[in-house]
Design a protein around this nucleic acid. Structure first.
Lengths: 83, 83
DNA sequence: CCCGATTTGTTCGTATGTATG
DNA sequence: CCATACATACGAACAAATCGG
């Protein structure tokens, strides 16, 4: 599953949705580190700014927590939206 | 002091005028860094392109100097117009 | 303590598409 | 047709924090 450049939905929004589903599905578990911005960037063929915007949204919604110099981690389930 | 969306004068022109006055008044001093494009964008509720156009004009007139990855800085007084 | 690699944080540079008056 | 203005998306450079050797 990856981003579709032809889909009119913004890439950052598509990417946020993809990551959100990976978390919800348990593919990415609480406290686990997410792929780095650099990795996501290459995996989806998008710019770093696009990755950062997607991750930023997930952070604001409580799905992940980002720490400078460390990485971005899946938040505890208690902090997830609607759950 | 900020931009007025109802004023028929273009936003970029209004913003350039505001920043120019801040410099002239000494609120922004030579060699001092200006608020970032992102900051000005939020502060005035305008798009980044609008901010960039305003700053671009100030640069062409000698009020400021912009450096990629660093920021935009107030120019030395010797470079100011009419002064 | 220092150095280098990795990772996130911030900033400017550029291009494209869309909408409005 | 043109200027204004917004949003998206890419690239580039630099800064700060972390970690391992």
């Amino acid at each position: 599953m990856t981003v579709d450049h032809l889909n009119p939905t913004p890439l950052w929004e598509q990417l946020a949705g993809i990551l959100r589903e990976r978390i919800r599905a348990g593919e990415l578990k609480p406290r686990q580190v997410l792929p780095s911005e650099s990795h996501l960037q290459q995996e989806h063929g998008v710019a770093r700014g696009t990755v950062r915007r997607a991750v930023k949204v997930l952070g604001e919604q409580g799905w992940v927590v980002t720490i400078q110099g460390r990485g971005t981690f899946v938040a505890e389930r208690e902090n997830w939206p609607t759950g």
